[in-house]
Design a protein around this nucleic acid. Structure first.
Length: 462
RNA sequence: GUGGAUAUAGCUCAGCUGGUUAGAGCAUCGGAUUGUGAUUCCGAGGGUCGUGGGUUCAAAUCCCAUUAUCCACCCCA
């Protein structure tokens, strides 16, 4: 009999237990911050009706959507009426439109679930990945103040994750469009296309963008292109500098002035919310590819790891659910592509070796004493320490080896010597030390040790 | 969807212009007088060289096809 090679489809991330523990640590940290800022949990089904999911049919999304069909339906040759969601924003729009009358507005929701895209295989590109989204949805209108709250959440998350210094780069689409209008790109559609080209500056370089803007598609004059390139090259350094750069832009049309005013207000509130000025900046090249952004846009990057690119991005949109309801629902949101983020942090060596969620293991010294080991474990579990017991006889060396490889920190030895003395030998595997503790003090001692390690500075889930 | 590269052990790879039983490191498993791990030493298992065809006395090696994977573009988290 030939064996089937066990493998996953390309583009999925499957983790070993210790990695999974680290991953969940990140997920929990993100969730904690979302909740701390008053966002409410929502989950939506992985599968949506195709007609709901594909309202804004367009080349790219449709190409990447996985359709779902039951075998029976497939046999009858029916068109698939179900599909896997490819992001969390479209389901959110459907959700808000569907439950509009039961929700309180402004509606602040967070959602951390997997989404699916038929990407062609590539490094760091996934077909199944976690998105961690927060959005605030207003009814009819939503103050630009909410745009300032999101950087505060981002700051909370990435400070807590301790993955090094980061910068939340901000820009405003109105400001960009207004600027393009001033240099002579007046057609909104053209402006959108220019936005996309300009967004590539960091990846493709100035020469590429210049060629693109002066080329067939845009035919912009050398002067206009020079102005655009100078504009998008600007990055602020500190709060005052950011305000100064906005003032220096000048005016000229309503769009530009509105954008400048919005971004200024956002900056003021970001500071008021306590985000350190080292963690945010304006960057006039940030545009975001998606067309639905209309105002503030964000992209967060790690200062020491520019190659990772954006680790969190989002922006303001005018009307979330125009396909599902006549109500006008403006919103602002951000998304963290957690699977990719985790993958990249691991590649960059920013994720330490996780320790197991199992905190202690009771060794099996003598099979006849197994009930005593179980009793010890029960006592520790009652004290809130995750404990496993060796249930099969193995050489003691093997038991230690097992604990070491499994990432279990404490091995507890309760042999004849210890029982006679009423003590337990504790071996702290990573620290390579061993000591004896009175049985009655054991749980307390372990607690103290665990808390001490947790209090130490560390990277992700050390 | 467009263009390019690669395919040898579980993983990372070596194998020069075709020539006996295809190698290494890591990993796995066993052992070094039975109450101590990740470092050391000794030993073992594991590959029809992606698949199919062709050239040849002889193919992992050359040619063709096919499949899979990877990289870039597009797009995006």
């Amino acid at each position: 009999m030939s064996l089937t090679k066990p493998r996953t489809m390309p583009g999925v991330l499957e983790l070993l237990p210790l990695e999974q523990i680290a991953f969940q640590g990140v997920l929990d940290g993100i969730r904690r911050n979302f909740e701390r800022f008053g966002f409410l949990p929502v989950e939506t089904p992985v599968i949506e009706l195709s007609e709901v999911l594909l309202t804004k049919t367009g080349g790219e999304t449709e190409r990447q959507v996985y359709f779902v069909q039951s075998t029976g339906s497939l046999k009858q040759g029916d068109e698939p009426e179900l599909a896997l969601r490819f992001d969390l924003t479209v389901p959110l729009a459907r959700y808000v439109a569907e439950h509009e009358h039961q929700l309180q507005f402004p509606f602040r929701r967070y959602q951390m679930q997997r989404v699916y895209r038929g990407e062609s295989a590539q490094r760091g590109r996934f077909r199944e990945f976690y998105q961690c989204d927060i959005d605030v949805i207003g009814k009819d209108a939503l103050s630009v103040r909410f745009d300032a709250e999101l950087p505060a959440v981002i700051h909370g998350i990435f400070s807590e994750l301790a993955i090094g210094p980061f910068t939340i780069q901000m820009n405003n689409r109105k400001l960009m469009r207004g600027f393009f209008e001033r240099v002579g790109v007046t057609d909104p559609e053209q402006q959108g296309l220019v936005l996309r080209e300009v967004d590539k500056i960091d990846k493709r370089g100035e020469a590429y963008v210049r060629d693109a803007l002066m080329g067939e598609q845009f035919k912009l004059g050398a002067d206009a292109v020079a102005q655009i390139l100078a504009f998008i090259a600007q990055r602020s350094n500190g709060h005052e500098d950011a305000v100064a750069k906005l003032d220096a832009l000048g005016g000229g049309n309503a769009m530009l002035e509105a954008g400048v005013a919005e971004l200024k207000e956002v900056l003021a509130f970001v500071r008021a919310l306590g985000v350190p000025e080292a963690n945010y900046a304006i960057n006039f090249s940030i545009a975001r590819g998606l067309d639905y952004y209309t105002g503030t846009v964000y992209e967060t990057t790690l200062n020491d790891h520019p190659q990772i690119g954006s680790i969190c991005s989002g922006g303001r949109y005018e009307n979330l659910a125009s396909h599902y309801t006549k109500s006008k629902l403006p919103g602002v949101g951000i998304s963290i592509g957690l699977t990719r983020l985790f993958w990249q942090l691991r590649e960059a060596g920013l994720i330490g070796t996780a320790s197991s969620s199992v905190q202690a293991m009771v060794a099996l010294m003598n099979e006849a004493d197994l009930p005593k080991y179980i009793e010890l474990a029960t006592q520790l579990r009652a004290a809130g320490i995750n404990t496993e017991v060796q249930l099969e006889p193995k050489k003691l060396g093997k038991q230690f080896q097992y604990a070491s490889k499994a990432g279990i920190r404490f091995v507890l030895v309760l042999g004849e010597d210890e029982m006679a003395k009423g003590t337990v030998s504790v071996k702290d595997m990573p620290r390579e030390l061993q000591y004896e503790v009175a049985r009655a003090e054991l749980a307390k001692t372990l607690r103290v040790e665990i808390e001490q390690l947790a209090a130490m500075p560390k990277g992700l889930a050390s």
